[in-house]
Design a protein around this nucleic acid. Structure first.
Length: 555
RNA sequence: AGUUCGAUUGUGUAACGGUAGCACAACAGACUCUGACUCUGUUUGUCUUGGUUCGAAUCCAGGUCGAACUACCA
């Protein structure tokens, strides 16, 4: 046995609870999204945490939609959220909805009225805000605060019956208008909304506030460890107040710091804005930090889980370097993605001593990291496409590729030596001329030569074409939300660059939507859902690490 | 200003009164039929001032800085 991985603060709490026999040692968590947007990488942390904790401690984890606001919520979001959680690799024990509890919550409210702990208020939103007080000044009591229990009960029933218009009345908890915690200054419990709800239809015209639904929903489900983000820490005393006054199951809430990522934004409001204002194509645009965007980009679910595990969990503010995520993606893809050759920025290479019309088929290993990965066939001929950047007219000292007099290995084929090149009238190099060494054939090399560089290639006569979408980070700055002005001013104009026609080796033409592969020396790519028969589209998932680029930057 | 939470290298996270460690990033090198992968090595840190203690990142007190709260959103 080696040293155990240290526990995070939530695991410590849970293990202490188990040791103390709290709730009989039972562990029950839940993931409680509101179906008003798509899940993002921040939610992934919460998902991994809640489902992971339940699994680790042989407990259960519910999926509960906190659908208390009919105006913003839609079934489309419900379906996508479920899909994303499944794709991440998690299975919920129960699929539940806060709206399932509307009748019970109504009864809870009536109970509190009956105990003199809630009242119907005729004040307007403005009046309530004005009497709220401030962080330094106490609020003032509503003139409706001391209505009789009977009157409150009747008015509340009338609210439910649809007797009043939106905003005409609310139900408020009767706590303390001078409480230092503003949330305990007679918070709203119910508001009137004559709106259609995605699940309950037109059954209700009053809806509970999140604060009057969330804690009790946890309680109803007998959640033992109710885990949420830091901003709800001020709400905990209110949830506890409701639970205590109602005398129901004492769920306990624990808060952790939400994860932020460099070079992106994470609030649903901002993400929705990017979609609505067409800065990206959709919620699942590969540049979005959404789960669906990352899936489309080609991030494997294992990599996202690994990332969540690596960055851990704590209570302090943070902004995680995106390179940490990219590392996890590369680490996974390196082991799992088959290699192919694709030439993104082509220039012709002519093997001058290779007979016209001759061709050979080479076996190329699919994945050097996987001994059982097998091989594929790649045709070779006299005229090839190579990468423009693999040739230099005046090669620098550390350039291990092509230039007159230099030798390179053509991956899985021959060593070639550059003898010359051709230019067009504008002075652009159009062709590179090389001779090959027949005795240097891959796998059967008797040339005795070693070359420093190996480059990829595609036979011009056999090449297929594809579109490639080169993605980069969505923002130019590490933390767009903390910069001056609008966060959208910091969108990276180069976040997507489309290469309409690149050359790919023929075997790749069989790739299917969602396939994750490596273009040798260029990066990891994934077949996009926009692909059509005969028209493949690849998304660049992430580049390879590039030591040469760094070398060049040094000048 | 009040309340609450927080502060460990560039970033994230450990150390639970006893050697400040790990990962990413960065840098240097080895290896390489991917300038990838892999391997080796290096640099950088306990917000501050006091106190308790043989000994403090850890406990106590004061300060500083940061975040959240003042929606009929969640």
């Amino acid at each position: 046995m080696s040293e155990e991985k240290s526990l995070n603060f939530l695991e410590e709490i849970i293990e202490a609870d188990i040791a103390a026999g709290t709730h009989g040692g039972r562990v029950h968590t839940r993931f409680p999204p509101e179906p008003n947007g798509y899940l993002h990488i921040g939610h992934a942390t919460s998902i991994c945490l809640n489902f992971g904790l339940a699994k680790k401690y042989n407990g259960q984890c519910n999926l509960r939609f906190d659908d208390t606001n009919p105006v913003t919520e839609e079934t489309e979001y419900v379906e996508n959220i479920k899909n994303d959680i499944k794709w991440l690799g998690f299975t919920w024990d129960n699929e539940l909805y806060a709206s399932d509890y509307f009748e019970q919550l109504y009864n809870f409210a009536a109970t509190l009225i009956g105990k003199g702990l809630a009242y119907v208020d005729d004040s307007t939103a403005e009046q309530i805000a004005a009497t709220k007080g401030s962080t330094t000044a106490p609020g003032t009591d509503s003139p409706y605060r001391n209505r009789s229990i009977e009157e409150n009960l009747q008015l509340f029933a009338e609210m439910r019956a649809g007797k009043y218009k939106d905003g005409e009345k609310t139900l408020r908890a009767k706590i303390d208008m001078a409480h230092p915690n503003l949330l305990l200054r007679d918070p709203l419990m119910y508001r009137i909304k004559h709106e259609h709800h995605h699940r309950t239809g037109n059954q209700w015209c009053i809806y509970p506030m999140y604060d009057f639904a969330h804690g009790q929903s946890d309680s109803i489900e007998k959640i033992t460890h109710s885990i949420c983000t830091l901003e709800f820490i001020h709400h905990r005393p209110l949830y506890n107040w409701f639970i205590e006054q109602l005398g129901i199951f004492p769920s306990h809430q624990y808060e952790f710091a939400r994860r932020n990522l460099t070079y992106t934004v994470m609030s649903k409001r901002k993400l929705l804005q990017l979609v609505n204002e067409k800065h990206v194509t959709a919620w699942d645009d590969p540049r979005m930090p959404t789960i669906s965007g990352m899936r489309r980009r080609g991030y494997p679910p294992e990599a996202i889980r690994q990332f969540c595990d690596t960055i851990g969990i704590a209570k302090r503010e943070n902004i995680v370097d995106i390179s940490m995520l990219e590392f996890c993606v590369r680490e996974n893809l390196n082991k799992t993605a088959n290699r192919f050759m694709a030439v993104l920025d082509p220039i012709k290479l002519i093997v001058t001593n290779y007979p016209e019309g001759q061709e050979e088929i080479f076996d190329v290993e699919n994945n050097p990291e996987d001994p059982n990965g097998g091989t594929r066939k790649a045709p070779f001929s006299r005229t090839l496409w190579i990468e423009r950047e693999d040739f230099m007219e005046n090669p620098t000292k550390k350039f291990f590729r092509l230039g007159v007099g230099l030798k390179v290995r053509l991956k899985a084929a021959y060593i070639v030596q550059c003898e010359g090149f051709a230019k067009d009238d504008a002075g652009n190099v159009t062709e590179v001329h090389c001779t090959y060494l027949p005795e240097s054939k891959s796998g059967n090399d008797t040339s005795g030569l070693t070359v420093k560089g190996t480059i990829h290639w595609v036979s011009a006569a056999h090449a297929k074409t594809a579109e490639v979408r080169m993605y980069d980070r969505l923002f130019r700055v590490e933390d767009p939300s903390s910069e001056d002005g609008d966060f959208k001013d910091y969108i990276n104009p180069e976040s997507m660059h489309v290469l309409p026609e690149v050359y790919i080796e023929p075997e790749l033409a069989n790739a299917r939507e969602g396939d994750r592969i490596q273009f040798m020396r260029k990066g990891y790519f994934c077949v996009d859902k926009d692909s059509a028969p005969g028209k493949l589209i690849f998304n660049r998932t992430v580049t390879l690490k590039d030591a040469w680029a760094k070398e060049q930057k040094k000048g």
